[in-house]
Nucleic acid binder design. Structure first.
Lengths: 330, 330
DNA sequence: CTGTTAGCGCCTTCAG
DNA sequence: CTGAAGGCGCTAACAG
């Protein structure tokens, strides 16, 4: 690999001059310019951003920790981040925790060891170990999706979104509503969305049978199974079901259709997240859009401000949401 | 940021000893060990992987260039890569070209300047400028999705996949088949899939009306519009349509349904790519699975072999595929 | 306009 | 068992 020294020697100047030429800092005579640029051309020299980083104490790299690479939500969020980061000359070092809490912490440390300029953590939990690890980091961090104390974060309005979606279902005339949730370890999706659902019901004087509330993991098939359990365990059937993710909702619809239900006539369904697929299943799924790409952009923006120093120490941002009323709810 | 020198000073040893302790290379007395580990603990010292890289001339980072971050295909491929790379202690530096040919080349150079240990290029074209840029790189490269001359690559069997899918449609009794393709700048999807389609027809003595073949970009709505054009421009209507991606196929189905077609009775539809959504649209979409995650794994494996030096200079790999026959084709 | 000098944080001979 | 010295590739005073 050719270095700045090679260029300097072959161009008959000092490496300082070469550096000046490359970075357009300071004067370089016309003759020197010519020599240098000729030699660079000939050798295909590419300055080492690496060595530069060591010297300058900044890498222009942002570490991004996500729970899973191959999910639509994550690719949207990361896409949003990339859009603003690329703009400012930063690149993304991707780290997946594969939903493993220990690995999540490891990844944070790994990113720190690589001296990334900042870290965006798309978190799914708020365990003390994680908080501890985040606080020990010596680089700016912003959390996405979970509200971590004393850390800048951008969160979705899970509670209100679930609540207003539920109200929409009530408004459509349903009073018996089933619910497919996820594990409470995921505070935002597991706890807040459920709370929004229950509070909306309570405010309207509705109650739920125990069989109506089921818990599932995040896959379509988990939604199918949860719906089957719901049908099985309900004394009286609900007339609508709210699933906390679109994928779960699609699974629910799948099972209902298989069991011969007319959708949405005999059973209305709603999801959350505005996945791509939601608009194209039959009937089109009523859901709520969280503006995931925007969340990525906002988080990147906050991080950049923190890095360049012109920012509050801790900045909290709450994303907006929007109801998408479609055919699966009547 | 605390450095190895700080640790050495505070532990009353030389930095050489600290280095030995950290990397478990060479002997370190019990007393020294204790001192060092105590100081490291107290300071929260994290060795700079960056400085290490400069010294060791390897970064343990792999650059991955993809055309677009937020597509299902890409997140699957990248997920596959990450699985094998993480295993070997490598991290992924993500670079999106946003489907811009110039930016694609820029990204390659940028990754080179960061001294990544290798690059995986998920390519959508084979323009001479790109080939030129790839050849000038001084790091191992493997291409995914396009067969680049003299470069290791893993490609999908686009031609055969399209051909056998078309044969499947013929076997179902259709002889008038429409086709929604994409721009030929994408050699694999634009050229090879179309060729497979046409060759299958030719072998069976079928021909196509001009209006039956439409070109679209990669979105669902592009599929909708292309289908509308197809209906509009056809003298006699085909009884089946093959779209080169699932998203296009979903768009096609959308338009057909809106126009009152019974699916698959009046018009059969097939897609390619086995997207998540394909199994859950109505009717379930017949498609072909390209094993995208596996492609990611394979490409990473080849790159790793190239990096560690135990590999052929150029390795070509062709992925398998599999027909997924579902309700949209009868 | 240009070169010399001094590190950035780390590993690795080479001598003790 | 340990330390001194050198250098990875680069930039930034400082002094011509």
């Amino acid at each position: 690999m050719v270095t700045i020294n090679d260029i300097a020697r072959r161009a008959g100047v000092s490496r300082t001059t070469v550096s000046r030429f490359i970075n357009e800092s300071g004067y370089v005579s016309e003759k020197a310019r010519e020599n240098i640029s000729r030699v660079i051309e000939a050798t295909g020299y590419v300055p080492s951003e690496q060595a530069k980083s060591l010297r300058l104490k900044r890498t222009k790299v942002i570490g991004v920790v996500i729970p899973k690479i191959s999910t639509e939500t994550m690719s949207r969020v990361v896409n949003g981040m990339d859009e603003v980061l690329q703009q400012e000359g930063y690149q993304i070092l991707l780290a997946s925790s594969s939903l493993d809490k220990e690995k999540e912490i490891e990844q944070l440390k790994l990113l720190e060891s690589r001296r990334v300029d900042g870290i965006i953590l798309v978190a799914t939990n708020r365990e003390p170990e994680l908080l501890e690890a985040v606080k020990n980091l010596s680089v700016p961090v912003v959390a996405v999706g979970q509200h971590l104390p004393d850390i800048s974060s951008v969160v979705y309005n899970d509670y209100e979104a679930a609540k207003s979606l539920t109200k929409e279902i009530l408004r459509a005339g349903h009073t018996k509503i089933g619910f497919i949730g996820v594990d409470e370890a995921d505070y935002s999706v597991g706890v807040l969305r459920k709370k929004g659902f229950l509070d909306a019901l309570k405010e309207n004087g509705c109650s739920v049978e125990s069989g109506w509330m089921q818990t599932a993991s995040f896959s379509i098939s988990a939604g199918e199974e949860a719906a089957a359990r719901l049908l099985d365990q309900s004394k009286t059937l609900p007339t609508a079901v709210l699933a906390v993710t679109d994928r779960l909702a699609v699974g629910v619809m799948q099972t209902l259709r298989k069991e011969g239900f007319d959708l949405p006539g005999e059973m209305a369904v709603a999801g959350m997240g505005a996945s791509d697929m939601s608009a194209y299943v039959t009937p089109a799924l009523t859901t709520v859009d969280y503006y995931y790409e925007e969340a990525g952009k906002v988080s990147a923006g906050i991080l950049l401000k923190a890095i360049t120093g012109r920012a509050k120490k801790v900045e909290k941002s709450q994303m907006d949401y929007r109801l998408l009323k479609r055919d699966s709810l009547r």
